[in-house]
Amino acid sequence: MAKLNSVSNFKKTFLVHAIILAALAVLPLFLNGYHQKLAVEAIILSVFAMSLDLVMGYAGIATFGHAAFFGIGGYAMGVMLKFLFPSIWLGLILAGFCTAILAFFIGFVSIRAKGIYFAILTLAFAEVVYRIIFHSYNTPLGGSDGLVGVPTPMLHLGLVDIDLRKTVNFYWVAVAFAYLSYLTCKLIVGSPFGSILSGIRENENRVPFLGFNVKWSKVTAFVLAGIFAGFSGAMFTAFKTYADTEQLNFLLSGKVIVMALIGGIGTLIGPMVGAVVITIFESIISTYFRAHHLIIGALFVIVVIFMPKGLFGLFARKDRNNNGS
């Protein structure tokens, strides 16, 4: 009975995924160049927001410096493409490597602080990273001018080479990137390790008595989230052909939290949708209003006051109760 159920569940999930992917695949055919670009950005940012969900939604750790990883991933990709070797793959590897080390360092040092102290500490670390790069005028990173003129190489994918300078091609690659990232994160949160994270979120003090090391679990979650944020930042730079300090700014750290909250944390897909919604919303209002931050700021306020669990959060609670395990 249980087995039968899971098979039909699997079929249903497969069908849903196939439909969404197909819809996403044909979407750019109906969009003009500007909107295609916007779609690529939205999809890349959705991975960034999802990476935050690993720490915030599952492990229940509020971090306020997530942009540091996005930015460092971006700079790593930029350095790789511009100065070292024109390969997206190597850029991603470098981005993952750099962010993993950075996240390990920040996580290891900060994890003893709890709650709001941890949030402020991560903010401080991110600010240090931001300032160091902001003032790096005489280095290849370009200081506050950013690392500009990053070339977009061909993407070697086995036998085929994809020309990423075409927005449509980059779009499809971004969809594949987001989908693979989603599947990987889904795997992580569904694993025993994911259960430990949920345990930490629900009742951190009990977890050690069940035989788990809370500190290392948290650091691991933080590193994983940092790596995925780094990947998305790397893709962002490859697409935009530059990396700049805006990608490291604490404003982005705050924005990504709102993206995740709007979508509903603890669901993975919620933050992704939230990122897409905010990106599109921001682009629309910035074409009509010069002072679009006024409206974005108001949106933050509204989200916090009226929907702390987000759009998907409302559904997710119900869903979890039905599924049980």
Binding site: L187, S191, G194, S195, S198, G199, G211, F212, S325
Partner: peptide, 24 residues
């Protein structure tokens, strides 16, 4: 968490290091 999840999490504690990333 559900009742079952509570117990299962506790059960996996003794063998925390093995197969950490396969589905629960």
């Amino acid at each position: 968490l559900s009742v079952f999840e509570n117990i299962r999490l506790a059960c996996q504690g003794r063998k925390a290091t093995k197969r950490m990333f396969s589905h629960v």
